Simulated assay, not measured.
Amino acid sequence: MRRITRIAAVGVMSAALAVSVTACGDSSSSSSSSSDSKDKKTALAYDIGGRGDQSFNDAAYAGLAKAEKDLGVKGTEAEPSDGESDADKVQRLTSLARAGNNPVIGVGFAYAPAIKKVAPKFPKITFGIIDDASVTGSNIANIVFNEEQGSYLAGVAAAKVTKTKTVGFIGGVETPLIKKFEAGFTQGVKDTNSSVKVISQYLTQPPNFDGFSKPDLGKAAAQGQLDKKADVIYSAAGLAGSGAIEAVSKAGKWNIGVDSDQYNQKGLAAYKESILTSVTKDVEDSVFNLIKSVQDGKPQSGEIRYGLDKDGVGLATSNPKFTEMTDVVAAVDKAKQEIIDGKITVKTTP
């Protein structure tokens, strides 16, 4: 059974800023009680969109679920609130640390300012942050990925399968991280077929992060690109990307998913046949590995990078229609090896 508790946002005037937390272990007592103090507990603080985004956050949850099953830890999940500030994230991480969770993992670069403030106050607790290497400390593990490398492979595939010689990229929010996806994808397309046009679009600009959470924005952007004859669209937009996937599927064109193998995401089952492949990030294993390192008494810290050479990023092959395209698969495999061998250097900015 799941139990729902609520962590109050200390020092925040409005009760609306409280954080909903789901504890994934079986227990009859509150997660903050002294009876749980000796239990192995860990926590995930989700990024924009929360669990159920069929993408980034769900991949992190899969790592937590694996740790619960294989390591016997009790997992706590903390969802973000709409329009929250860095101060809200500080309160969330503080509450999770005080409850005895170790490690406490911030899912996404948005947690960097909060971890910078909270981690020094809890030196015996490991804080993990995914997709950020800017904030460092002896008890901070920076889990980062070479997204541009996986995106390059997606560009190769897109250039090989397009019939209109027009493909699209949809980024959720125009940040340095998402620009890595765009840069790799565009380079992969152009290196494969320089005559293919790439239409790039971002849904929102910081500090507006709706581009990661509102499917209608992704749907409208995809429709606009379809109207411009794009027949392959790669969306790196979190939950908003599901709207793009819907639009592309209904148009009978190809989607390229992101972060998780979106062909296998239950929430996208109605559109799976349109998902040619997905650029995957091994967020699941990265979360599990961090939790395991703490349980083993050898907590990870510093930069932990996952690239093509360690299968930390890659291109999913779940859709049988993709694997049947032997020339496409061969081109992708060739590009992958050349990146690993250093023959291709993938750009990190468009």
Rank of each mutant, 00 (worst) to 15 (best):
L71G: 06
G314V: 03
G75C: 05
I304P: 00
L226V: 05
S34A: 14
V232C: 14
E174G: 05
G172I: 00
K228A: 15
G243A: 04
V156F: 03
D216G: 15
I304W: 11
N319E: 08
I256R: 01
V346R: 11
S301F: 09
K334F: 00
S286H: 08
T94Q: 08
I178E: 04
G72T: 07
E77D: 13
K89P: 06
K334T: 14
A237V: 12
S20Y: 09
K219T: 09
V173R: 07
I115M: 09
P113I: 03
Y202N: 07
K292Q: 14
V294Q: 01
S95I: 04
S235F: 01
A18D: 15
R92Y: 04
R98K: 14
A43L: 02
V232S: 07
Q54N: 12
A15S: 12
Q223R: 09
P207Y: 09
K343M: 10
K197P: 04
G72K: 04
A16W: 05
K180L: 00
T164A: 12
A119R: 13
A60F: 07
F145R: 00
K197H: 02
A112I: 03
I170W: 12
R51W: 14
D47A: 14
S85G: 00
I48N: 14
A8M: 10
R2T: 15
P120L: 05
N57Q: 10
L290K: 12
I105F: 06
V161R: 10
F212Y: 15
K197G: 08
V12E: 10
A270P: 03
K41F: 03
S286T: 09
G312H: 02
G241W: 13
D82K: 15
N146Y: 12
L308A: 02
V232K: 10
K117R: 08
Y271R: 01
K66S: 13
G218Q: 11
T22L: 13
V173H: 08
I170Y: 08
S20M: 12
D58Y: 13
G63R: 09
I48W: 12
K180A: 00
I140E: 02
K253E: 08
A251K: 00
S81P: 00
A110D: 13
S194E: 14
Q262F: 07
V167E: 14
V90H: 01
L226Q: 07
T186S: 15
G312S: 01
E284G: 01
F109I: 01
D309L: 09
G243T: 13
L177F: 05
P215A: 02
A23G: 09
N255E: 00
A18T: 14
A251E: 06
S249D: 11
S30L: 09
Q205I: 13
A221C: 02
F109H: 11
D131Y: 00
F169H: 10
N146D: 15
G267A: 05
K250P: 06
T94Y: 01
L217Q: 12
A230C: 08
F322R: 14
I178N: 01
V196P: 04
I125E: 04
A65S: 14
K38W: 00
V21L: 11
N57S: 07
K197Q: 08
G128A: 05
G342V: 08
G108D: 07
